[in-house]
Amino acid sequence: MVDKQITSYFIEHYKTIPTLIKAPGRINIIGEHTDYNEGLVLPASIEKGIYFAVSGNDLNSIQIETFLTQPERIVFQLNGAHKKFESFWGNYFKAIIEILVAKNYPLKGMDCVFGGDIPIGSGLSSSAALCCGFIYALTKVSRKEISREEIALIAQEAEHKIGLNCGLMDQYAVLFGKKGNAFFLDCKDLSHNYIPINLDGYSWVLVNSNIKHNLAVDSEYNKRRVSCENIVKEVQKYRPEITSLRDVTLEDLQQVANLADAIDVKRANYIIEENNRVRKMIKVLSAGDAITVGAVLKEGHWAMSTQYEITTSELDTLVKIGERLDGVLGSRMMGGGFGGCTINLMKTEKLDTSIKSLLEQYKEQTGIDAEYYHLAIDDGVKVFE
């Protein structure tokens, strides 16, 4: 287990027993790209996560080592200074420390070893887990609490600093997740509640296409956001009270369709309909209607493929194969797009044969070995006993 590896490495190298913190990855059942449009989302925190073994030190520095990718050690001074480093993850920690220094947060010296079992680039929000877990670790060592809401905002600001103009869904899911439940979040007022996710006789499975994405490097994510903002500006010309796509109706969209770019109109249409899919998903999950849950998943995928254009041919292939299998009720790409996983609802009695067929046919059609993970819904960021 990665948590035991990290703990034993820490004890061996730092000669003290650390506090161990777990920050989970997250799935999103439905509600993709709606968060930065003040929309509705339905994520859940998962069993896979990133673990941080931490302890205070008497040095004026934060020393960080990782098992996550290539082993590397970075030292940040408490004033935010550091030597040159190679790793991409170092940019997240650099951004967080700079934000906390600017806020006059009383940072203390810390030793940190981290690693995890979230597959990087799989759409399970390893970056939000990394940021939220690290900030939470800093608060434990510095002994000055920051509310989870504030941690979410700092983590979001760190992502913005390194080039990904993300919403707050990932951070809230990682921080507020609850075992056995999906997390319904209204991104307009940040109100939230919990929806039981387990359907009797059915199982949730992730299938990793092994097409990796890096949203911070790829500007396609930010282009989608600009499209949404363009439509809001058009609608504001006759409805100045509008602040986001959340309040734009399909009728509003029709009214500006001839004035706006056709691609922007298509993307805005996707967002408005996706909010409706979230509302429908909550109803059918609460009713235990697995058949309709599967149908909403499929509808969401093909809208992402044809309207928002964020899937890949490989992800489309995974969904098409699932549509032909009796044991798969529905699936869709999950995450920011351009790679990563599909989330699948499967009949538990046909689970093994469905997964086997899915992986075999995907390999035949793409030449790529996919991986699968049984989905267990876990709690948000916590001290891990």
Rank of each mutant, 00 (worst) to 15 (best):
K4V: 13
T7L: 14
E12N: 13
H13Y: 12
K15W: 12
T16S: 15
K22W: 11
G25A: 01
I27V: 10
I30G: 06
I30W: 02
T34Q: 02
E38M: 07
P43F: 05
P43D: 04
A44D: 03
K48C: 01
A53W: 11
V54G: 06
G56R: 12
N60V: 04
Q63S: 13
T66Y: 00
T66D: 06
F67N: 11
L68R: 09
Q70S: 13
E72P: 00
Q77S: 14
N79K: 08
A81N: 15
E86Y: 13
E86P: 09
I97H: 09
E98R: 13
L100H: 04
V101E: 01
A102F: 11
F114H: 01
G121W: 05
L124R: 09
S126P: 08
S126Q: 08
S127N: 12
A129C: 04
A129H: 05
L130A: 02
C132G: 04
K140Y: 09
V141C: 06
I146L: 15
S147D: 03
R148H: 14
E149Y: 15
E149N: 10
A152W: 01
I154K: 05
E157F: 03
E157Q: 15
A158V: 05
H160L: 09
N165R: 14
N165G: 02
C166P: 01
L168V: 05
Q171H: 05
A173F: 07
G177F: 01
G177N: 09
K178D: 02
F183K: 08
F184E: 06
C187G: 08
K188A: 14
L190D: 02
L190M: 14
N193G: 12
I195Q: 04
P196E: 00
I197K: 08
N198C: 11
D200Q: 01
G201E: 02
W204E: 09
N210P: 00
N214Q: 15
A216T: 11
Y221M: 03
N222K: 02
K237W: 06
R239Y: 02
I242C: 05
I242R: 00
S244H: 04
D247L: 12
E251F: 12
E251R: 11
E251L: 13
D252C: 06
Q255F: 12
K266G: 10
E273A: 13
E274Y: 07
R277E: 04
V278S: 02
V278Y: 08
V278C: 03
K280G: 13
V284W: 00
G288P: 02
W302A: 04
S305K: 14
I310G: 01
K320P: 05
R324Y: 11
S331H: 07
M333H: 10
G339T: 03
G339P: 00
I343L: 10
L345K: 00
K347L: 09
L351C: 09
S354M: 01
Q361R: 10
G367Y: 02
I368P: 06
V383R: 07
E385H: 14
E385V: 13
